[in-house]
Amino acid sequence: MSVIEVRDVDRSFVVRHRSGRLRRTSTIVRAVRDLSFSVEAGEMVGYIGPNGAGKSTTIKMLTGILVPTAGSLRVAGHTPYAERAALAQRIGVVFGQRTTLWWDLPLRDSYDLLRRIYRIPADRYRENLATFTDLLDLGPLLETPVRQLSLGQRMRGDIAAALLHDPDVVYLDEPTIGLDVVSKSNLRDFLRETNRERGVTVLLTTHDLVDIERLCSRVMVIDAGRLVFDGSLEGLHGLGEARRTLVVDLMEPAPPLDVPTAQTLRVDGPRQWLAFPAEASAAPLLAAIAATHEVADLAILEPNIEDVIKRIYSTGPAPSD
């Protein structure tokens, strides 16, 4: 069953700017266009795209704080903007760059306010708080004012806050931004477990592709307001011409190698980088090089998701027309 349904959604903004002493012109910017996707209950979906691609606009529409210009959205059976209060009971939101906690209050007080806001039954609240305190290691932090928490601690606090009322869907907007490697890894473990144990549907936006690789079986890529990819992570790798890179160290510096099946990307003294199709074997390539040059050392770099995405972004449609 689809818990999120987005059909032909468009969202444009009118941007006014001065074009003379008194004259103002306005241009229409389409932040999101012809967006359609659906997310099944219990899925964990990565939603990625460069800055300004329309990720936040999408999340805002899914929480009901922004109305689409055209098209329809359904989340957990509600139309977000029309039934915002009802929807709020079913969703949780984490903004990596903002906090939903109260700055001057101890963490526990923020949770108590949320209990009242969402009218969480007392036993359910106690149970959830105990679980999250345990899993996110919040015990020593509960009595600390939020302003004194480190970024990593605050983020853990925020994630627990978003889950206290047992939402069906959670939107995580860059939850790992600014965190160190260990904090990131712990947070990912927690998210994976929450998704599995509680069946919470997760929509995750991030710039950290490791988040996606570790957590999401499905990834959507948005660029310039359009969905340019929706599929599995492997599918994303295979998208376009995925290439591997052969790095060779020659005995002597040489002009760029000229091998028919590969493209020489870079030359740095005796070291050269050659790109070749991911599905091709490196052996004939190496043989071709060894026939004309003496090879001291070599390495093969597997295609990485970052390169794939970089290629998708740079070939995406123009921002406006």
Binding site: I65, A88, R98
Partner: peptide, 13 residues
């Protein structure tokens, strides 16, 4: 000013 008001808006209060 900071945009945090978005958080206030989606709360059911």
């Amino acid at each position: 000013k900071t945009g945090d008001v978005a958080i206030d808006l989606y709360r059911p209060v």
